[in-house]
Design a protein around this nucleic acid. Structure first.
Length: 479
RNA sequence: GGCUCCAUGGUCAAGCGGUUAAGACUCAGGCCUCUCACGCCUGCUACUCGGGUUCGAAUCCCGAUGGAGUCACCA
C-alpha cells in the first residue's frame, strides 16, 4: 500500500511551531517511504476564517522546504483539498452511516441536552433519539424539525487500536459519547469530516498531535461501520513552553514567521524542531533535510512532551550561519546592517567580522551600534585582568598609537597589525596590552566584532584617529 | 471528577534485563587569542517515590505521586 500522509491545518493566519513539526514529521515519514504528502485545508469554521491565511501556509511549507505533493494548488485527483468546498459530500456519508446503523438522527434541543449535565457540568448524551421509531424519525424529518446526526457508539465493551508511537490504546466504549457528526446546519463536525476526507483521499497514515489519542477509537468505530479500512496512526507528543504549559499563541510567540523575522534560518528551525520529539540513531544534531528524510523512523519518536528551548535553537542557528559562504552571509546580513548604525560602513568587512559572532541575525544592530555612537566612557574599560591593563597604562602607551595611525600606509588590517607589532617590540611593550587599550579607546564598549586593528580599518584613518585623540584627552583630564 | 497517555541532569535526549547511565545545549574552569566571540580541552548536574519479579532492574509488573490530553452543533 502506498504511503500517503497529510497535513491538515486550519487557516488561522500563522504557522505555529508545533503545527509545523507535525507537518514536518508527516512529510518525513512519507518521503522516507517514497510516499505522498498531502495538504488539506480545514476551514469548516467560517467564523475563524482569516484573510490570507492559506497563503501563509503555502509560504511556510515552501520556505521550510517541505513541499506538498497534492493540495488545493496541486490536484492529485482526490480533491477538492479545501474542506469548505467539500461540504455537500458529508451529508450523504452521514446518511449512509445512519443506514448502516453506525449513526442516528437526533432531534434533542439545547434545553434537553443541558439538563443532562452532571454535578461537574459534564454531560453525556443518553441516546434518547436512538430509540425513536422509523416512523417517528420520518415524521419529524418531514415536519422540518431541526436535527443533527450522531454517531452510535456501543454501550459496553472495549475498543482498541495500535498507535505507532504509543502502542496499544484501549478505551471503554461506555466512556465515549455519541458525538455529533453532522451539525444542524448540515455542516460536518471536524471529527466526521476528517474521517471521510482521510478515507476519500486514501490517507494511509494519520499523523497528528496526541490530543486525538483518546478520541481515535471513535474514528475507528466509524471506519468499521462504513466498512472502510482503518488507517495507521502516529500521535505526536506536544511541544511545551515550560513543564505545564503547551506552546501556543497565547504563551510565547512561537510561530514560524516570527522566528524568520528575528533572523533565524528556515533550515535551522526545521532542523531544531525535527529534534524536538524525535532523535536519530546517531548522535548527529545538525542534519540536512535529506539526512532527516533518510534517517527518520517511528522508533525515534518520543512519547513524552518536550520543552521548546530557544537557547539551543539559537546555537543551532549559529552553526548554520557559520557554515554559510561569506557572500551568502553578507547578503543575509545586509538588511540588518541597513537598519543599524553601520550605514555607510564597509558591509563586506563587517559581515566577515560578524559571521562567527552572531547567533541570530537580529543581534547585528546591537553589535555594530558603536560605529555611530562614541562618547566619553568609564575608564574601567581599560582594565583587563589577564592582560594587566588599566587606565594608567593606557594613558602611558596610547600616544604611541597616534603615530602608527598617522603614518601607516596602506591603512589596512595586516599592515596596521604588523606596524603595531614592530612598535611594540621596539618599545618593549606587550602587543596585547597596546591593542587592548587601543580597541577600548577607539570603540568605548567592552565587546566589539573585531580587534583594534580591524575596528580601526572599519572606522577609517580619520575617524579612528579622532576617537583615539579624544580618549587620550579624557585620560589626562581625569588624572 | 471519569477516561487515555507520559515520567533519565536546568533543557533536548541515548538506553529495549548485566553500561564507568552516551551525546548535545546551558553553566563553570582552562587553552588559543589584538577585546568579545569562534575553536579545542576539562568539569558539575539525572534514572520521581514505594513495593514486587529476577542471580541481576533506568529497563518488566503493581501502586503512589507529579504532569499532559480529553470529556462542545471548535478545530
Amino acid at each position: 500500500m502506498r504511503v500517503r500522509t497529510r497535513f491538515a491545518p486550519s487557516p488561522t493566519g500563522f504557522m505555529h511551531i508545533g503545527n509545523l513539526r507535525t507537518a514536518l514529521y508527516a512529510y518525513l515519514y512519507a518521503k522516507h517511504n517514497n510516499g505522498d504528502f498531502i495538504l488539506r485545508i480545514e476551514d469548516t469554521d467560517r467564523e475563524r476564517f482569516v484573510e490570507g491565511a492559506v497563503e501563509v501556509i503555502y509560504s511556510t511549507l515552501q520556505k521550510s522546504g517541505i513541499p506538498h505533493d497534492e493540495g488545493p494548488d496541486k490536484d492529485g485527483g482526490v480533491g477538492p483539498y479545501i474542506q469548505s468546498e467539500r461540504k455537500n459530500l458529508y451529508k450523504q456519508y452521514a446518511e449512509e452511516l445512519v443506514r448502516r446503523g453506525g449513526a442516528y438522527y437526533c432531534f434533542c434541543d439545547k434545553d434537553r441536552l443541558n439538563g443532562l449535565a452532571d454535578e461537574n457540568g459534564i454531560r453525556k448524551y443518553d441516546k434518547h433519539c436512538l430509540h425513536l421509531s422509523q416512523e417517528e424519525v420520518q415524521a419529524k424529518l418531514a415536519a422540518g424539525v431541526p436535527y443533527v446526526i450522531r454517531q452510535n457508539i456501543p454501550t459496553e465493551g472495549m475498543t482498541e487500536y495500535e498507535d505507532m508511537v504509543y502502542g496499544t490504546i484501549r478505551v471503554p466504549c461506555a466512556d465515549m459519547e455519541d458525538e455529533i457528526l453532522l451539525k444542524s446546519d448540515g455542516m460536518p463536525t471536524y471529527n466526521f469530516a476528517n474521517v471521510v476526507d482521510d478515507h476519500l483521499m486514501n490517507i494511509s497514515h494519520v499523523i497528528r498531535g496526541n490530543e486525538y489519542l483518546s478520541s481515535t477509537p471513535k474514528y475507528n468505530l466509524m471506519y468499521d461501520a462504513f466498512g472502510w479500512e482503518r488507517p495507521r496512526y502516529m500521535h505526536l507528543p506536544p511541544i511545551m513552553k515550560d513543564a505545564t504549559r503547551k506552546l501556543s499563541k497565547r504563551y510565547g510567540d512561537a510561530n514560524f514567521e516570527d522566528f524568520i523575522a528575528k533572523g533565524y534560518l528556515p533550515e535551522a528551525i526545521v532542523n531544531y524542531i525535527a529534534l524536538l520529539g524525535w532523535a536519530p540513531k546517531t548522535n548527529d544534531e545538525k542534519m540536512s533535510l535529506q539526512t532527516l528524510i533518510d534517517s527518520f523512523d517511528v522508533d525515534g519518536i518520543s512519547k513524552s512532551s518536550s520543552i521548546f528551548d530557544d537557547v539551543k535553537m539559537r546555537w543551532l542557528n549559529a552553526q548554520y550561519l557559520k557554515e554559510l559562504p561569506e557572500e551568502e552571509f553578507l547578503r543575509m546580513a545586509t538588511p540588518w546592517l541597513e537598519q543599524s548604525q553601520a550605514k555607510g560602513y564597509d558591509y563586506a568587512l563587517l559581515a566577515h567580522l560578524l559571521q562567527g559572532r552572531v547567533e541570530i541575525l537580529s543581534e547585528i544592530p546591537e553589535k555594530v551600534a558603536f560605529l555611530n555612537q562614541f562618547a566619553d566612557f568609564d575608564k574601567e574599560l581599560y582594565f583587563h585582568k589577564k592582560l594587566k591593563c588599566d587606565a594608567a597604562l593606557a594613558k602611558e602607551i596610547l600616544p604611541i598609537a597616534v603615530d602608527v595611525f598617522q603614518t601607516t600606509e596602506p591603512f589596512d588590517n595586516q599592515t596596521l597589525f604588523d606596524a603595531f607589532g614592530a612598535v611594540c617590540e621596539e618599545k618593549g611593550i606587550k602587543k596585547g596590552q597596546l591593542l587592548y587599550c587601543l580597541r577600548a579607546a577607539v570603540t568605548g564598549v567592552p565587546s566589539t566584532p573585531g580587534g583594534a586593528t580591524e575596528i580601526a580599518v572599519l572606522l577609517g584613518r580619520e575617524e579612528a584617529l579622532r576617537r583615539l585623540l579624544f580618549s587620550i584627552e579624557h585620560l589626562s583630564t581625569e588624572a
